[in-house]
Nucleic acid binder design. Sequence first.
DNA 1: GTCTATAGTTTGATAGAC
DNA 2: GTCTATCAAACTATAGAC
Lengths: 204, 204
Amino acid sequence: MLGEATVDWQSKRREATRQEILAAAWAAARESGLAALTLRQVAARVGMRAPSLYSHFTSKHAIYDAMFAQAWQEYDAVAEAHELPSEPRTALREVARRFFDFAVADLPRHQLMNVRTIPDFTPSARSYAEAVRVFDRYRAVMAAIGITADEDLDLFVALVGGLVDAQWANDPGGTRYARLLDRAVDMYADALQLPQVHADQEEP
Amino acid sequence: MLGEATVDWQSKRREATRQEILAAAWAAARESGLAALTLRQVAARVGMRAPSLYSHFTSKHAIYDAMFAQAWQEYDAVAEAHELPSEPRTALREVARRFFDFAVADLPRHQLMNVRTIPDFTPSARSYAEAVRVFDRYRAVMAAIGITADEDLDLFVALVGGLVDAQWANDPGGTRYARLLDRAVDMYADALQLPQVHADQEEP
DNA sequence: GTCTATAGTTTGATAGAC
DNA sequence: GTCTATCAAACTATAGAC
């Protein structure tokens, strides 16, 4: 009587509940701040009492961990969706803009992905693998542009990440550092002596 | 009988206690993380009970606020202490190295100064003024080097800050991004067409 | 003025009924 | 799987000893 169909339905329902809880956690984090998230707050949003969450996550950190993995999966999907232009400098600009826009769109998500904000929280190996997957894709994209040295990859990450952090710290919601992004990328491309774009529309 | 001398002694003692509490708070933050700091933890370090701290600070946030001001005062003292070389690129490297080393030396201090880690904490106007003082000094130093445009100042802050954040996030305690600092500064100096250093010791 | 004692509230987590 | 009940720890605030 309890065949595969029942088990399947149950596990689907269980997964759906997990996703509901995660969505509630993101909403709560956006409202109160990532570190200020409380289990009662999350539970209330899904119509539960706080202890019930422990049927789906072993601890508060386990929720943070699932959020961490989900955020990197989201970014991986964004990166996968877009084809890059063949011209190296244009492609480089797009890589930078893509990461910048994603990081600037959601503060708690950015904090969880790129800043160690929660004391004692370290992503599990399983969740960290999602971040590694994105970095592997980044490595491949940069190789296609013509950049392969580890130090060059690190410098680009630091450059774009620095603009993101400065944007959040000094002008949240504004464009003070967003405006500098293309210029920063060009500066980097010049230093690496990447081929210049054909200046078709220069000085008309 | 209660003359100026008594008042002076009392206020000195009071200020000393304040400083003891702040020192204990820094130590606790370094041990447990900035956001995980508890008043009991701080009080225990100075041989008090938690409520006694309220005689010296009106709230936990007031302690964070005093720490924020103290951190920027510290940096201002570091910046004031050093004379900069006259050669622009060398000076620029020193400005970057000074900030980088300071930020990488102490995680909770860096988080408090440059990252919004504590939910609901915003520095008071009085404390924020300390950060502004440092930025004004930065502006003057950069002007002496020959850099005055706001966008140029912002880009340099983002560049060096990005290396700091990447160092903390991806290689805490290491030198993976510290090694890229001079190269990053040169890249920036090239983009701004700062005069080249005399290549006295090039290709010996 | 400074500290202790203490009370009230919030939060993460566990136990056990159903 | 969800609930109620409950605990330990932590922040805030107040009353009162000295």
